[in-house]
Design a protein around this nucleic acid. Sequence first.
DNA 1: TTAATTTT
DNA 2: AAAATTAA
Length: 62
Amino acid sequence: MPGVNTQEYMGKEYEVEYEGHKYKLKPLKVWVLQPRGRKGIVIGLFQLPNGKKIRKAIGKIE
DNA sequence: TTAATTTT
DNA sequence: AAAATTAA
């Protein structure tokens, strides 16, 4: 099956850790990271309260 | 190493 | 231009 619903991931909040702090954040952007012929993961781009942006895996692709 | 995408 | 993100 082709397209993963990034909208699904966009709507939810995820626990993100940075420098020992935990934040519950919604991703600014979501995409699939999947090498050809292998399983992949879903990456979310998050913005911390400090303004820094970090990536975190938020899902798996079978 | 590979994948997409953005930040640094 | 390189790092970072995950795991196969």
